[in-house]
Write a protein that binds this DNA or RNA. Structure first.
Lengths: 211, 211
DNA sequence: CGCCGCATAATGAACATTCATTCATTTTAT
DNA sequence: ATAAAATGAATGAATGTTCATTATGCGGCG
């Protein structure tokens, strides 16, 4: 009887997946507004009421999608990254993984901005009113990408990276690639293999310690 | 009789400003969803119907706010930047202006992400279906920040900056600062004067041509 | 095999809200 | 007195959610 952990009533997990996929799809092209549960039901190929068998309400749905995406991103970014590699090589692999991932799952890259600007009580179940609770909740949610943060720590401690907080190092070397990947998915820019290499090198220049 | 250019019926422009300010305020803290015209009217201190004297509808309001913000940002970023300066100095001044602006108008920084992920037909009156129209409309809207783009061009042509498209150079050297400014406004990170200098230097490292 | 009972899964019309927008009326300024 | 500006109750459409009803899969029984 240990198959019932996923949902209270809903059983087959592929319905849940279909709903999550449809949510991501709508979110990436229509945004959070102009996105209704009825549209979602139609897109997912289920009835409106079915959604509420798998998710408590709209916010719960968004929250679970967010968690789901972070796990998938974390998994893909860290693929083929060896703990024993030097930080430079690890970063380059992660950066390439990120770009490749954005090509195979563009909806996720396109929806990233939506999540980034979402009220924190939806994503983390905690509001700005209690900063310490919010911080803890956020840390838990982003646990799947913690190894990346730790890589930045190691690089900084060994003076291979600049002496800056991890958030800053990530803002300098991950976010630009996310932005460019989004623009690339939207057809606003083109970037070939050589261009990608140059971009990654530029991001590396931003964070590496220049002796 | 030359005071009637601003609106069809509405006259006093401070009502328009009040509505725009209230829109920005709500947009930055509640996001696009959970933002209603009735809330807006209350916040702006006007009746619901008054909004429609100055703006055709909700989308028009958002579009005008977007244009308004871009003009203000462009104006502030280029303050105290001399055309005769070397590119390095120009960039540093713009970066500092950007940070300072984010402190004095945090709502604008907080709402940036909302606009970035908004369907293009709202912001530019053109959809993805006709890429050439969309591109032209976008260029027109972003005209106030064109001097910045031109600075990047000059820097690249004179081999002071890396040989990358302007969009890429901006993604590398402007966007990270926007991201950090947003996180700083939200209290998620702290950054003192020294830290800011280090961040700007890092962004400069990302785009400058290393001989 | 076919039929039955039963528990779970799924449905979608119905409901109460909330939304953007309108317009007959009132206020304001000249 | 008159024209422009502002109002806010009214309207219909759309939203998130519920729940009485229907469908489905399944193990036992004749």
């Amino acid at each position: 009887m240990n198959v019932h952990y996923a949902a209270v009533r809903g059983m087959t997990d592929d319905k849940r997946r279909a709903i999550l996929n449809a949510t991501l799809c709508l979110l990436s092209q229509r945004g959070f507004h102009g996105f209704s549960m009825k549209q979602l039901a139609e897109r997912a190929g289920v009835a409106a009421g079915t959604i509420y068998l798998y998710f408590h309400d709209k916010e719960d749905l968004i929250q679970q999608l967010h968690q789901d995406i972070i796990e998938e991103v974390g998994c893909h970014l860290l693929a083929d990254v060896d703990d024993d590699w030097p930080v430079a090589q690890q970063y380059h692999q992660i950066a390439r993984n990120l770009w490749q991932f954005s090509l195979q799952a563009p909806e996720i890259m396109l929806s990233k901005g939506q999540f980034d600007t979402m009220p924190p009580d939806i994503l983390f179940g905690a509001s700005y009113e209690s900063p310490e609770l919010l911080l803890a909740a956020r840390e838990k949610v982003f646990d799947p990408v913690r190894p990346i943060k730790e890589m930045y720590q190691r690089g900084r401690d060994s003076q291979q990276l600049k002496n800056l907080p991890e958030d800053v190092l990530m803002a300098l070397s991950i976010e630009p690639i996310c932005n460019l990947a989004r623009d690339h998915c939207l057809g606003m820019i083109q970037l070939d293999e050589a261009g990608l290499g140059a971009v990654i090198e530029a991001c590396w220049d931003a964070i590496r310690y220049h002796h």
